[in-house]
């Protein structure tokens, strides 16, 4: 089966997000007062796997080994089956 994994990489709580802070300030200049802005990185990975569980496990390994840095990042994986 073919699956598409959407991986979102976020800074861990307590890490600074200077880009988000700058965007929040710039939104203020435009008259939008918002409580917070956080930035994240998104990867879409398409892969073949025998089952959704195996696909999920493989993408998790990819995140641990390369896509995220567990010291500073949290990540989430959303998986969907492609037709």
């Amino acid at each position: 089966m073919q699956y598409q994994a959407t991986v979102t990489i976020e800074q861990k709580a307590g890490m600074l997000d200077p880009e988000g802070t700058t965007a929040k300030r710039a939104l203020g200049h435009l008259g939008y007062e918002v409580s917070s802005v956080k930035t994240a990185k998104l990867y879409e990975i398409v892969l073949e796997a025998e089952s959704a569980d195996i696909a999920q496990q493989k993408v998790d390994e990819m995140c641990q080994k390369l896509i995220a840095n567990p010291i500073v990042h949290n990540y989430t994986i959303e998986l969907k089956e492609l037709n």
């Binding site: 890490m15 600074l16 200077p18 880009e19 700058t22 840095n69 010291i71 500073v72």
Partner: peptide
């Protein structure tokens, strides 16, 4: 640090 030969991580400067 990325190779885990040293501890920690180098992240974006506080003033980016």
């Amino acid at each position: 640090t990325e190779a885990r030969l040293l501890e920690g991580a180098l992240t974006t400067n506080e003033y980016p």
